[in-house]
Design a protein around this nucleic acid. Structure first.
Lengths: 229, 229
DNA sequence: TACCCAAGTGAACACCGTTTACCAAGGGCG
DNA sequence: CGCCCTTGGTAAACGGTGTTCACTTGGGTA
């Protein structure tokens, strides 16, 4: 019973924190404001989280989980064997989500990582890896030759390839992801991220009137380069 | 004389604000901390700036001016008629500056724009436009055919082209920038921004050991696609 | 000289994160 | 049953923040 209550108020804390984030931005999520809204005093929150930044870190986790759910839902409506359609769906889903949740996007992506945090384990990084890995493993595709990846980044691309295969469950060997594919995925990510971040932050170097064709042509160009449909 | 003093303390305010930014991040630049460091009380700063965010906005301007100076210096050492070398120099200069000034980069780029601010007039956008416009106007290059730009974004690309030509002085007509070139520049910017932001924010989806080859291969690929050297 | 105005001060207000001491209710157990 | 101890909450306090307001003060000008 007591556990139930504790879990319930914890859920309320995170929900209210999330609401404050979308209403007033990251600087509006404040221990006292949260406490006020759920009818509690601020120090009580320290029974649940060690500090404000600790709480925010958990909110980041919730945000990423929601994004993952969203993308999962989008992907569920696309045939599993249509790789091109699945890639398009997840890219469009990412952009749509980012535009609909600009403050969450800013919190998760544009918060400079603490120098102490180890590289490569940020929450969305894992989501991205999981989804692309899943798509790649579940459907046939052309495997780009490994010669395409420049020699000087073979080591790092191999690291990324390992991250990809580790992200998709890893119980059975599943050796189906090569260096060329990993390199392609990485380039995909750089451009998708750049495009979406520029749009969400409104940092295109001119006053864009309609960003959707911009996004769609980028996506089409990307797909063509990669040999997708 | 009085004007001199005012300008001098103003300069000191911005310098100290900048120092606090690089030492403790954006949240470390605080009116009281600035005042303390220059031997003044906090309310005195309101004789110079309307609010903290107003001050920070001016610091953003200073940061952008410094970046522009840096890129200008880099570009001064490259022959004016070697377009490829100039493009490489400014791209590498941008990355180098961003890595050397992560906090300034985060402040300028990753601060979500106020919904009130009009699009396309953020300080770095103008720098980018000025430099690329300058390079394009000062040296010969292949002009991509306008057919390459998809029909649905002709209007926006035309807007961007206008921004580009307006950014390079605009006294003489100088009609030398076409839609194809503007589209190319925009795609360049998306990828450059994505690559640099991911690197500076340490958001690559795997633990990168050496980001330089990653950047260089992106740059080479980009240049090849565009037909540069 | 007398005035005026710009720069700076001090105190105050309402917030903030965080720590500390305290309190009340509830379950485990002798 | 009664004790005790954990758990979740409170109130007060400390130092910090942006911002406002009334006030001084000193140099330039009429």
């Amino acid at each position: 019973m007591t556990d139930r209550n504790r879990a319930e108020t914890d859920r309320r804390i995170r929900t209210v924190a999330r609401t404050l984030l979308v209403e007033h931005g990251a600087q509006g999520v404040t221990l006292r404001a949260i406490a006020r809204r759920i009818g509690i005093t601020a120090p009580a929150l320290y029974r649940y989280y060690a500090s404000l930044s600790d709480l925010i870190q958990h909110v980041v986790g919730d945000v990423c989980a929601d994004l993952a759910d969203d993308l999962g839902g989008v992907l569920a409506e696309v045939p599993a064997d249509d790789t091109a359609a699945r890639v398009f769906a997840v890219c469009r889903g990412f952009r749509t989500w980012a535009i609909a949740h600009p403050r969450e996007f800013a919190l998760v992506f544009a918060t400079p990582a603490d120098p102490g945090a180890s590289s490569g384990n940020d929450p969305f990084g894992r989501i991205f890896v999981t989804f692309t890995g899943g798509i790649l493993a579940s459907s046939p595709r052309p495997e780009p030759p490994e010669d395409d990846v420049p020699e000087r980044l073979r080591a790092d691309i191999a690291l990324f390839r390992d991250t990809l295969v580790a992200g998709l469950g890893g119980d059975r060997p599943e050796p189906g992801i090569g260096l060329g594919t990993a390199y392609t995925v990485l380039r995909f990510w750089v451009r998708l991220y750049g495009q979406v971040a520029l749009e969400v932050f409104d940092r295109f170097p001119f006053p864009v009137t309609d960003a959707t064709p911009l996004f769609e042509s980028m996506l089409a160009e990307l797909a063509a380069e990669v040999g997708l449909s």
